[in-house]
Design a protein around this nucleic acid. Structure first.
Lengths: 153, 153
DNA sequence: TCAGATTAGTTTCAAATGAAACAATGTCAA
DNA sequence: TTGACATTGTTTCATTTGAAACTAATCTGA
């Protein structure tokens, strides 16, 4: 009874790359959130800020915003919450008093280590069935697409 | 001066699949939004609802929510706005008076056709440099990963 | 040197969002 | 039937979010 909407569809949603990427991203996110949020009480922003600090060591808010592509307001709020939870510490920056240097606390490091091993397992679930070269190729394609999108006018 | 945070990092962020996927998704989204939002004044939810209705013809709110993985409240609001803009029409469903059947209006179809050709160009930008088989492989991997993630406990 | 412009980070306020409550209809078993 | 439960879609309300305003510090160039 349902009539086909377009006799000659321009856009086939199911093979439209943005549609597929969005669906994959959404499904992935639900899995990840069940770990960092449901099990450890961190928001996505908090987890991402934590991961960037873990990667870079001592870092300014501004560089977290750039590294994690979160806007500075969200970073500021995430850091406040992480500080309240004693996971992150703020130190004054002697070289530039406008900014603040952020580091993980001891318990921040512990949580990060725990979380990262849990999330690596989740990643392995996502990528189950693919061999190493396929995954490498996938990652490289995603990086190229990110570049193409960022270069976009 | 910046000390390495972990002597033996468990998780290498730059090759961590969820990190890459998220960055790609974010970059892609900015490009797409510059079309449907900045140029045509549609929110992401509105565009996605429009695309699902275009694909499926006559459809219930509920099925849009499932098809687009948007929650029903967001669908309800997006449909209201689309109706206000005369892009979508609500018709009572004779078979089940709880639900409402949604279709594109004439101008909704026109906008959809315009938008989809514009967005296909954006997609082509993203995928520039890859051949057809690479893109097919990519899409298939994303679908598999989505399934793996959805099957996750 | 010092006035204007720029940058880092926070706060404020309005808009977007999501969970729960809700009204209206439909289903199903006793 | 009918009465308990389920489903559809909207509304309400509290929280989250983001843009702009703001404070404080730094840079820049006449």
């Amino acid at each position: 009874m349902t009539k086909p909407p377009n006799t000659q569809p321009l856009l086939t949603l199911d093979t439209f790359f943005p549609y597929r990427l969005r669906r994959t991203y959404a499904a992935m996110n639900r899995c990840l959130a069940s770990v960092y949020e449901d099990q450890h009480g961190l928001s996505q922003a908090e987890w991402r800020v934590l991961a960037i600090i873990a990667r870079d060591g001592q870092i300014r808010s501004r560089d977290i915003a750039i590294g994690a592509t979160i806007d500075k307001v969200a970073v500021s709020r995430a850091v406040s919450r992480l500080e309240k939870k004693k996971l992150v510490e703020r130190k004054p920056n002697k070289e530039d008093a406008r900014s603040i240097l952020l580091t993980l606390s001891h318990s921040g490091e512990n949580l990060y280590n725990l979380l990262s091993s849990e999330l690596l397992e989740v990643e392995a679930q996502f990528l189950k069935g693919f061999d190493k070269s396929e995954v490498t190729k996938l990652i490289n394609m995603l990086m190229q697409i990110e570049n193409n999108a960022s270069a976009d006018t």
